[in-house]
């Protein structure tokens, strides 16, 4: 396994925002990480890239192993050497991801100059080759332009180029397309996953679009309110979701032939981190909630094909209460 996350908990101050999250990722695998806003997707991404201290967060329990090295106990300097080199990060909003007063070229060149030891000329040649692979026309001219001269989709391609420039093993992409036009979104996801597949890289793709998960991912982890609800191969999740929350997410995907307006959201409000419900945090909104759901925290159980679920009354599975 390239990445092993076990029982990971993350806190900011006294607030525990991520609790007991576990998943594995093999080399060449693409994992979707889904969940509503505030469920802890970005925090997971920051934990994977060792960037939690930037927002004042820290790992309070569990372990995070990347290719055999424990990321939690690594000194800062070692983590920095990994970042951009073996673990790349694509941030949420391409509009604000680039330094507005620096030209595009040097921003991308930095990665291969720092991590691969290329000189100025070689780094630029690599940058231009990458931009061309990302189907950016006139890569040469783009290198000498400034971010404000580019469209959102173009900027996100630049950020992807930066991620690829260090020849990484793992890319963590935090909602790489939410800030973009719908038409551009599909192109970018397609481009990213194609390049990842071609190079045999691993990818953690954070999204709240189940359609993207179905299309692009091998496996999927569903977060709810800072905890892992369910994780399994994509086909298994779509064929038979076991967590009521996963089932609700799948029901929310728009499908062909649906009458407009018939799309049902999940009733109720997203739980707030300062006042998570007791027991199973989904219980106030759960259609299957039964005895014990509001008092006992469900644990991860392996009920079927290579996946785990945390629910007292799973769909297609034996209750544990």
């Amino acid at each position: 396994m390239l990445l092993r996350v076990k029982n990971l908990s993350v806190s900011i101050g006294t607030l525990t925002l991520l609790e007991g999250v576990s998943f594995d990722l093999a080399k060449g695998e693409i994992m979707g990480l889904v969940g509503e806003s505030g469920s802890g997707k970005s925090l997971t991404a920051l934990a994977l890239t060792g960037l939690l201290p930037l927002i004042g967060g820290r790992v309070t329990a569990g372990s995070l192993e990347f290719d055999g090295t424990d990321m939690v106990t690594q000194p800062k300097r070692k983590l920095r050497a990994l970042r951009g080199r073996r673990i790349a990060f694509i941030t949420q909003n391409p509009m604000t991801a680039l330094d507005p007063v620096q030209r595009i070229g040097p921003q991308v060149d930095f990665v291969s100059r720092t991590h691969l030891g290329l000189d100025r000329k070689a780094a630029r040649a690599r940058t231009i080759a990458l931009l061309t692979q990302l189907r950016i026309p006139q890569a040469d001219a783009i290198c000498s332009s400034y971010p404000h001269q580019l469209s959102g989709g173009m900027k996100q391609r630049i950020v992807i180029a930066m991620a690829l420039a260090g020849d990484p093993d793992l890319i963590v992409a935090d909602e790489p397309t939410t800030a973009l036009d719908v038409t551009v979104q599909a192109q970018i996801i397609h481009l990213l996953t194609r390049l990842v597949r071609e190079r045999g890289l691993s990818l953690v793709l954070i999204t709240h679009d189940m359609g993207v998960v179905a299309q692009a991912c091998d496996k999927v982890a569903v977060l709810y309110a800072g905890r892992l609800a369910e994780q399994k191969p994509v086909h298994a999740l779509f064929a038979s979701p076991q967590h009521p929350y996963s089932a609700a997410l799948i029901d929310c995907i728009p499908r062909e032939g649906m009458a407009p307006g018939s799309l049902t959201g999940i009733p109720g409000n997203v739980a707030s981190a300062t006042a998570y419900p007791s027991g199973c945090r989904f219980h106030p909104r759960c259609p299957r909630a039964g005895a014990g759901c509001d008092t006992k925290v469900p644990v991860q159980r392996g009920l079927s094909d290579a996946g785990t679920v945390a629910c007292h009354y799973p769909l297609n599975g034996a209750p544990d209460v």
Binding site: L51, G84, A88, F89, A97, L98, Q102, T114, V159
Partner: peptide, 20 residues
């Protein structure tokens, strides 16, 4: 916001402060 990506690229904090 753009400082996050500089850290993600593995840039030294001193360089981030002085150059950016």
């Amino acid at each position: 916001d753009f400082l996050m990506l500089l850290h993600a690229k593995g840039m030294r904090p001193a360089r981030i402060q002085l150059r950016h």
